[in-house]
Amino acid sequence: MRNSIAVMNTKGGVGKSTLVLALAETISAYHGKNVLVIDSDAQASVSSMLMSVSSLYKLQSEGATIVDYLHGRVLKGQTIDWPKFIVRNVSDVDDSRSLFLLPSDMQLTLLEREVSKENLHARLREVIGELLTGVRRVFDVVLIDCPPGLSVLTECWLREADFHISPTKADYVSVCGLEVFRRFKGLNPEMGFAENLGVIVNMKEANSASDEEYHRWLQANAENACFAQAIPRMPALQDAANYQGYERSYLAKYPGQVGTAVRALTDEVMSRVSARNAPKVEAKEPAAASA
């Protein structure tokens, strides 16, 4: 089943990691799916949203992050079992117990430099492909939090993942980021690329004529496959990014309008993934009329 989704925009500041968090916790809590979040951002934002800072630092100190996995596989040629790097019992939402994490570390940037220095781009993509092949078999949904920009590692995810989602703010600069991404996707088509699952308008300002205009413009372009549900800019969603040391219910973390919007968007995402995996029915040729 095609179930891996790279989430990225070449422009930063579009609320990408917070959106990955919300989607992951909602898919786990409301759809009952086993979800793996792969944190491929050196800032480790979504990792720190899913566990305490001290727990994350402990994993980083022990060499138990995606950096260490890729370093061993790509740079040292070691045989390493990826399940050893998967963290369970993450998230402070008591309804989201089927959520797992492959955490990140700031050393990820240095790893990419070493890969480029040693000209191991092909090997990195091969390892990423093997990793995704493995996790697809175990988890129902795999969400990959990619950093902004088009790094060597991000390109590997985009070429090996099944789908990509592009969050954007409804403003000129963020929309320009989508255009940069679109042009990049058109390069070297023979190398393969994730299928566009859609554009998500995130952090939309209520009662903003400008935001509404950009939203309509994005929806009008069929190539965007824009999701109908936008995510509003609200303090509750920003607060959701702060990991709590105690468990709370999903509705406590995503109350009111925010929770309603996130659940509606998640329903759309899951519906599109299901539709893309449905077997295609070929139209039959009409029977020839008898003489």
Rank of each mutant, 00 (worst) to 15 (best):
R159I: 04
L218A: 13
V281G: 04
R233C: 04
R216D: 11
A228V: 13
V20M: 00
N34W: 03
A252M: 08
Q257I: 07
V138C: 02
A283W: 12
D211T: 06
Q107K: 10
L178I: 15
L124K: 04
E160Q: 11
E130T: 14
A64N: 13
P147K: 06
K253E: 01
V7L: 12
Y250N: 09
I128W: 00
K76A: 14
C226S: 06
Q244E: 12
A278Q: 12
P167W: 00
S48H: 05
V173I: 11
A252K: 01
E126H: 14
E25W: 03
D162Y: 09
R88P: 06
F193A: 13
I38W: 07
A22E: 00
S290I: 05
L56P: 09
L150T: 05
N202D: 07
R73L: 03
P147Q: 12
S274R: 15
A241H: 07
E114W: 08
V262G: 03
E118H: 13
K185N: 11
F227K: 06
N277V: 15
H31G: 00
Y250H: 08
V258C: 07
A287Q: 10
V201Y: 09
H71T: 15
W82D: 03
L102F: 14
S55E: 15
E160T: 06
Y243K: 00
S4T: 14
E285M: 14
E160S: 13
A222N: 07
S45D: 10
Y214K: 05
S249A: 10
V35P: 01
N34L: 00
P189K: 05
Q43I: 06
T109N: 04
V262F: 07
P147M: 11
V46Q: 05
A236P: 01
S274H: 14
G32T: 12
G198R: 09
A287D: 09
A289E: 11
N207D: 08
V127D: 07
R113I: 09
D81Y: 12
Y30L: 02
L59E: 05
K280I: 14
G186V: 05
A6C: 11
W82V: 12
L19T: 13
L108Q: 02
V87A: 04
E126F: 15
V90A: 02
V173N: 08
E179S: 10
R137C: 06
Y254T: 05
A122M: 08
